[in-house]
Simulated scan of single mutants.
Amino acid sequence: MKAILAVDDSRSLRQMVNFSLKSAGYGVTEAADGVEALALANQRQFDLVLTDQNMPNMDGLTLIRQLRQLPGFARTPILMLTTESSDDMKAQGRAAGATGWIVKPFDPERLIAVVKKVIG
């Protein structure tokens, strides 16, 4: 089973992502912010990281940059799942190492389709 780390400060959004992805056969671990996500990433490997941008303690771009420093996450797909949709923010995401971008509110079917495309 492919393991996904879902990072968002909104509990309801994490639950929606978790439900959508588990129903498609993925294992999901939740983190409330970048600090918690980084701690989890230091403990185990994930096949994909889905992260919000605007979170307390550590935002999504900082999390991506930190994850890319870890040997096990140099090539791990990281998708931004965020309300941020400006070209400037997307460019910053790419520069930080984001693999892709999904704008909230998201369609669960589209999320699953993107995840399948990225990690199978």
Score class of each variant (00 low, 15 high):
residue 1 M to W: 10
residue 1 M to I: 08
residue 1 M to G: 12
residue 4 I to L: 05
residue 5 L to N: 04
residue 6 A to R: 06
residue 6 A to W: 07
residue 6 A to K: 00
residue 6 A to E: 07
residue 7 V to Q: 01
residue 7 V to I: 12
residue 9 D to A: 06
residue 10 S to P: 00
residue 10 S to H: 14
residue 15 Q to W: 12
residue 18 N to V: 11
residue 21 L to R: 02
residue 21 L to N: 02
residue 23 S to K: 15
residue 24 A to T: 09
residue 28 V to C: 03
residue 28 V to Y: 00
residue 28 V to T: 00
residue 29 T to E: 14
residue 29 T to C: 13
residue 30 E to C: 15
residue 30 E to M: 15
residue 30 E to W: 11
residue 31 A to L: 05
residue 31 A to T: 08
residue 34 G to M: 08
residue 41 A to K: 01
residue 41 A to V: 01
residue 42 N to Q: 15
residue 43 Q to P: 07
residue 44 R to T: 10
residue 46 F to I: 07
residue 47 D to M: 06
residue 50 L to C: 04
residue 51 T to M: 00
residue 53 Q to R: 09
residue 54 N to G: 03
residue 55 M to V: 05
residue 56 P to H: 09
residue 57 N to S: 13
residue 57 N to A: 13
residue 57 N to I: 03
residue 57 N to L: 10
residue 57 N to W: 11
residue 58 M to V: 13
residue 59 D to V: 04
residue 60 G to W: 00
residue 60 G to V: 01
residue 60 G to R: 06
residue 60 G to A: 05
residue 61 L to R: 01
residue 62 T to M: 10
residue 62 T to W: 02
residue 62 T to I: 09
residue 63 L to Y: 08
residue 65 R to I: 04
residue 65 R to Q: 15
residue 68 R to G: 03
residue 71 P to A: 08
residue 73 F to I: 05
residue 73 F to G: 04
residue 73 F to R: 04
residue 74 A to P: 11
residue 75 R to S: 08
residue 76 T to H: 02
residue 76 T to C: 12
residue 81 L to N: 02
residue 81 L to D: 01
residue 82 T to P: 09
residue 82 T to K: 01
residue 83 T to V: 12
residue 83 T to P: 10
residue 84 E to G: 08
residue 84 E to V: 08
residue 86 S to Q: 07
residue 87 D to Q: 13
residue 88 D to G: 03
residue 89 M to A: 12
residue 89 M to T: 14
residue 92 Q to Y: 10
residue 92 Q to T: 09
residue 92 Q to I: 09
residue 93 G to C: 05
residue 93 G to K: 06
residue 93 G to P: 02
residue 94 R to E: 09
residue 94 R to Y: 05
residue 95 A to H: 14
residue 97 G to I: 07
residue 97 G to T: 04
residue 98 A to H: 09
residue 98 A to P: 10
residue 99 T to W: 04
residue 100 G to S: 14
residue 100 G to D: 14
residue 100 G to R: 10
residue 101 W to T: 03
residue 105 P to N: 07
residue 106 F to R: 00
residue 106 F to N: 05
residue 108 P to M: 11
residue 109 E to H: 14
residue 111 L to Q: 03
residue 112 I to Y: 01
residue 112 I to V: 15
residue 113 A to V: 03
residue 113 A to R: 02
residue 113 A to H: 01
residue 114 V to I: 13
residue 116 K to G: 11
residue 117 K to H: 15
residue 117 K to R: 15
residue 118 V to Y: 10
residue 119 I to W: 07
residue 119 I to G: 03
